[in-house]
Amino acid sequence: MSAIVVRNLPGETHRALKQRAAKNGRSTEAEIRSILEEAVRPSGRLKIGSELAAFAKEIGDADLIFERDQTPVDAADFE
């Protein structure tokens, strides 16, 4: 797991984080993780795989079969 350090956090912000954590029954560190997780990976985000599967079901789950082209790729020539 990665670790980060936040420097120059105002005391008022730190107190507010501690209060919010206590209200949610978490440690301050767990509260900060929760805030960051929701900020960068919101629960309502679009999940493209799920959306494509739902779309396929909506149009009748078309039986499309795609076969991967197994032809070897030629190396790039930069000359």
Rank of each mutant, 00 (worst) to 15 (best):
G49I: 02
S27W: 13
A56N: 13
N24A: 09
I48Y: 08
A56L: 14
E37C: 04
A30M: 03
A75I: 07
E37K: 11
V40L: 15
R41W: 13
T71Y: 14
E67N: 10
G49K: 05
R33I: 03
R68K: 12
F78D: 00
V6Y: 15
P72N: 07
R68Y: 12
N8P: 03
A62W: 15
V6F: 15
S43I: 05
S43T: 05
D77L: 14
E12Y: 11
K47S: 06
Q70S: 11
L9D: 04
V73I: 14
A21C: 06
V6L: 15
R68M: 10
G49Y: 06
A30G: 06
P10N: 09
I48M: 12
V6T: 08
L36G: 05
D77F: 15
V73F: 15
A53M: 05
E31P: 00
A62N: 09
R41E: 11
G25R: 01
K18T: 06
L52N: 03
G11I: 03
S2T: 12
I59K: 12
I4C: 14
I59L: 10
A76H: 11
A53Q: 09
V5K: 15
G25Y: 01
L9P: 00
I35F: 02
G44H: 07
I48G: 04
R15H: 06
A54T: 11
F55M: 09
G11W: 07
A39H: 08
S34M: 08
D77I: 11
A54N: 14
S43C: 03
V5P: 00
T13W: 13
Q70V: 05
E67T: 05
P10C: 06
S43V: 05
R7H: 10
R26I: 01
Q70N: 10
R41G: 01
R26D: 01
G25W: 00
Q70A: 10
G49D: 08
S2I: 09
H14P: 00
K18M: 08
